[in-house]
Design a protein around this nucleic acid. Structure first.
Lengths: 139, 139
DNA sequence: TACTTAATGAAAATGTTTTTCAATAACGAA
DNA sequence: TTCGTTATTGAAAAACATTTTCATTAAGTA
């Protein structure tokens, strides 16, 4: 996996590889902190001056559609994006610096079965997110 | 607990009880589906015609501050509010009709301890949310 | 190299949330 | 009850965020 590979995936899905998209992909690829569309615009414009904010929105939309990036929900807002985890993963976020770590291995089967029985719901998905302080920020 | 009690809590915290606030509180109290500020405005205006959208935003802000309501995060958007659960509770949402059920009793200690050890993070909170179909909507 | 058409940036439109401000009304004090 | 202080209000404007429109540009294929 590399930024070049993301561009290939765009191409393979019938999307053209343009300078604007290269700049956005280069900005997003490998990020460990979520960025808002405006932040992506500011950063990517250093690589491609003419880049418009509208194109950032449109490119993020396509990267999300290809599941290369995903939206991050936080108390402060839910418009930021990071590279997507692979398979079923959850997030751990540092409240101080915003660093994002993926983890897997939650076993919520017992819980969901119990809740399903109690409520009559058919449970199809779950969101689990942890918040804390990363090794650097816990001082 | 009743809508009247929410108004008392506003009063006890130094806020005045007005017609506009009554209408918003009456709308929010007892809801089992999340409403956006605009939806609250539309509904509450049936009880208090002159109600402005701005006042809805301001009242929701205060109810959230008093922890009487809380924001609900969903794939489609994160601007909707419902009456808050008591203590540490999680949400189960029906994907079809939007009905919200609270539950407790998750035990994530083993998981968070393991993740904390693996990542070096100090874990302070977690969000857990289940999505599915309620008894009515699963047909 | 030329052609087709997806992609672009700018501007405008739309939608949401916040701020400003003069008028109003809640509510404690008299 | 009445009065006075001041929090609250709605309207309008401002500030932001996101989407749409459209003429121009450039990617990728023939």
């Amino acid at each position: 996996m590399s930024a070049e590979n993301w561009l290939e995936q765009l191409h393979d899905n019938g999307y053209r590889v343009t300078g604007a998209r290269r700049a956005v992909v280069d900005t997003m690829y490998g990020l460990t902190r979520a960025l808002t569309p405006t932040e992506v615009h500011e950063t990517a414009r250093k690589k491609y001056r003419a880049l418009g904010l509208v194109t950032v929105y449109r490119t993020l939309e396509k990267l999300e559609e290809l599941r290369l990036i995903q939206r991050v929900h936080q108390p402060m807002g839910c418009q930021a994006f990071i590279p997507a985890g692979i398979g079923h993963q959850h997030l751990l976020l540092c409240k101080n610096c915003g660093e994002v770590v993926f983890f897997e291995g939650d076993d919520l089967d017992a819980l969901t079965t119990a809740i399903a029985k109690k409520t009559g719901y058919k449970i199809e998905e779950h969101w689990l997110q942890l918040f804390g302080l990363c090794a650097n920020c816990r001082e």
